[in-house]
Amino acid sequence: MADSTAAERRSPAAAYAARFEAASAGGGLRLAEIPFLTRVNLRVDPKSPAAERIGTAIGVPLPVEPGTVAGGGGLEALWLGPDEWLLVGPDGAAPGLVARLTEAAGGEHVSVVDVSAQRTTLVVAGERARDVLAHGCALDLHPRVFGPGRCAQTMLARAGVVLVADEDGFRVLVRSSFAGYVAEWLLDASVEYVAG
């Protein structure tokens, strides 16, 4: 009872952990949630001095090519739009990151918003990952088009997501309120690839 003031935080897809694990048992597919990552939305003119200062301050130059990811030092910058990025870092990094960005922005026209709670991260990895996502995603996910270092905002099963390609699969950044739906959809779409 002593800690009743500190509400225990729960990630949006926490309830799916056991079913994700069961679906991953076959080895061809790995489903999991990475909870509580830091995400900061950044909007700045890529040609402005502030954008360059921010790149230096966080140690990651903001990628200007559409749909690409730049990373380093535990931090990733995802291209969301020509003047918009999503910075992804480890749990707890938000206050420090926001402070560094705000300082680097100086007085310029820059928007920095901590949106960590907006989404959660679902991992869809393994050799069947592409087949599962292809059930509900119109993008060409072949590595020659969408390999490591690429990201895209698109629709997965009619839900808006940010897809990030990794070496062994994908991360699906989905809005917290859609996490249950997308988790159910992923489990349903993966039935045929899970050894029963």
Partner: peptide, 10 residues
């Protein structure tokens, strides 16, 4: 013009 060919639903 930024993201390349995408489905009309987007």
């Amino acid at each position: 013009p930024w993201c390349g060919p995408r489905d009309e639903a987007e």
